[in-house]
Simulated assay, not measured.
Amino acid sequence: MPLHAQQFFDDVLEMSFYQYAIVGDALYTIPQPNSLLRLRIDFTPTIRHGEYDGLRLRVFHPEQGVLDTAILRFAEHGTFERRDAARDLVAGRDGYAVIRDWHANSSQPPWHGADGTGLRTAIEQYAHVWFPQPAVSRPSARPVAQPTPTTRLSPRSR
Rank of each mutant, 00 (worst) to 15 (best):
F131M: 02
F9P: 10
P2Q: 11
P62V: 09
T121D: 14
D68S: 12
L67W: 05
G92Y: 03
R48W: 07
R40S: 14
P155G: 05
G113E: 00
L3K: 12
Q125K: 15
L27R: 04
D25T: 12
Y96P: 08
L72F: 13
Y52A: 08
W130R: 09
V59D: 04
V98T: 14
L72G: 07
L57K: 05
L36C: 02
T151R: 14
D11A: 11
T148N: 12
L37S: 03
Y126M: 04
A141K: 15
E124P: 08
E81I: 07
G24C: 07
D25A: 10
I71G: 00
L89W: 08
W130H: 14
L3Q: 07
R156Q: 13
F17T: 01
S35A: 15
F8E: 08
H103P: 01
Y28S: 10
A127N: 04
A91L: 09
R48G: 00
G65F: 02
I30K: 12
V59H: 06
S137T: 06
P62D: 03
F60L: 08
W130A: 05
R158P: 00
T69D: 07
I47D: 15
P132F: 00
R87D: 13
G118C: 05
A75M: 08
R82L: 13
P31F: 02
R58K: 13
T121R: 15
M1Y: 04
V129Y: 13
N34C: 08
E51N: 08
T46I: 07
D11L: 08
Y18V: 01
A141F: 03
L89M: 06
V144E: 12
R58P: 03
G92C: 05
R58V: 11
D11Y: 06
D11Q: 15
R87Y: 06
V59G: 03
D88S: 15
Y52V: 02
A97P: 10
A91H: 10
F17S: 02
L72Q: 10
T150A: 08
S140L: 14
S35R: 05
R73G: 00
V66I: 15
G54S: 09
R158L: 11
G54P: 11
D10W: 01
R100A: 13
F43Y: 04
I22F: 01
L27M: 14
A86V: 02
L27S: 09
V98K: 09
A145T: 09
M1L: 03
